[in-house]
Amino acid sequence: MKKAVIVQAKRTPIGKQNGIFQSLQPHELAAPLLEHLASGIEDQIDDCLLGNVTGPGGNIARLSTLTAGLPLQVPGVTLDRQCSAGLEAIRMACYYIQGGAGQCYLAGGVESPSTSPFPKRARFSPDHIGDPDMGVAAEYVAQKFGISKETQDEYALLSYHRSWEAYKEGLFTEEIVAVERHSRDEEFSKERNMSALLKRAKPIFLKNGTVTAANSCGIHDGAAAVVVMEESTAHLLGYKPVLRFVDSQVAGVHPHYPGSAPIPAIQTLLKRNGLTIGEIDLFEINEAFASKIAACAQEFLIPYEKLNVSGGALTIGHPYGASGAILVTRLFYEVQRRKNARFAVAAIGSGGGVGVAVLFEVVKR
């Protein structure tokens, strides 16, 4: 079987809804990213897979490749697995390479809630099951797994400090491709007293709940993508592979508990590959809500020292379809800063109760 490797990974800055990217359509956000990643290998690219959730519909991937000036023979396909879409795109590209369908893919996701033509979210689940908004579902996860507001706030504060520390150390600089001269995540324009905010914040989804605006992510615009190559091809083209795709798993849970969906996905993935939590050096699990991260960490006994080590969506934001690709981008650079990392997992849960987890092996240098 052919081996798929990640050889490049980049993202745009993340902007607040109606913020720095308020006038950019999804393809206008994705195009600079694709142009950068494709530079020098334009004729090698078999396809471009992009996740997207909020529209405007159509084949955003194809429109983005054309806008980026990629060769006309790069077709493009857009997919929607809600918040898992960007990670799903990378997962699919890896399987295409394993199956011999091609040798080089651009894969990731893009989201622009600022320009979405849809005033309401899509339906996640039929009425007879129940279709809670994601905030309410985050409350259900907190209730099911016994996650207190204090535990959520503790994690949110840790994530916030980690994000700002990483930003101040310049760790995000290497991840980012500037768009319209913006080269910094919008949330880093001003540091806040997060401890005070967490203490003041009240439940916003359920009257006696635990989920607040301070321990939840915001709504954001952004894009992220990677270059996935067949390993021998990567070497021939002069690339140094960083992450080697090992395996992946998708799981479904009750739509009331989408934040818990990474749990069975990770559990099945590790069991099938004969690995334990202790053998995974880094986890990136999307921080849509602190209740979700605390539940996943609690169920697996994942030490916070190896989980979202540079913060995540609770601070920089959650541009739905792009977030899964942001997780892989984060792993791509973090493993290069570590001498002995061997395995890494990216995982995300999404509306409707779907979880995606991907296992990577760090390529030895």
Rank of each mutant, 00 (worst) to 15 (best):
H254A: 14
A261C: 08
K240N: 15
S260D: 08
D247S: 12
V253N: 00
I219P: 08
M229P: 00
A225F: 05
V250C: 13
V242M: 04
A225N: 10
A251L: 01
S232E: 14
T233V: 14
S248N: 12
S232G: 07
G259E: 12
K271E: 14
N215P: 02
I266Y: 00
L269F: 02
K271Q: 15
S216N: 05
P262C: 05
A224E: 01
L236M: 07
G238Y: 02
N215S: 01
N273K: 12
T268Q: 13
N215L: 03
A214I: 04
V250H: 14
L269S: 01
D247I: 11
E230V: 07
P264M: 03
N273D: 05
V246C: 13
T268R: 15
G252C: 08
A225Q: 04
S260L: 10
E230C: 03
R244M: 14
G222H: 05
A225P: 09
P241T: 00
N215D: 05
V246N: 11
V228T: 10
V250G: 15
P258R: 01
S216M: 02
R244Y: 11
G259T: 14
G238V: 04
P241R: 06
V246D: 13
L270F: 00
Y239R: 01
A225H: 03
H235T: 01
H235S: 09
C217A: 14
L236W: 03
H256A: 13
P264I: 00
Q267G: 03
H220A: 12
D221K: 09
Y239H: 08
A223I: 12
S216F: 00
A234I: 07
C217L: 09
G252W: 00
V226I: 05
G218Y: 10
V242W: 07
N215V: 03
K271F: 09
A224R: 11
V246L: 15
G222Q: 05
Y239L: 02
T268Y: 06
S216G: 00
P241N: 01
C217S: 15
R272M: 08
V246Q: 14
T233L: 11
T233H: 13
A265K: 00
A225G: 08
D221M: 09
V227R: 05
G259H: 13
I219C: 04
M229I: 01
S232A: 13
E230W: 08
E231G: 07
P255A: 06
V227W: 03
G252Q: 08
V253K: 10
A261G: 06
A265I: 07
F245Y: 15
A261M: 09
V242D: 06
R244N: 10
H235D: 01
K240L: 12
V253D: 03
T268K: 15
P264H: 04
V228W: 06
A224K: 02
H220I: 11
G259M: 12
P264K: 02
R244W: 11
H254N: 14
G222V: 08
Q249F: 10
V227E: 01
I266P: 00
L243T: 11
Q249A: 14
A261N: 06
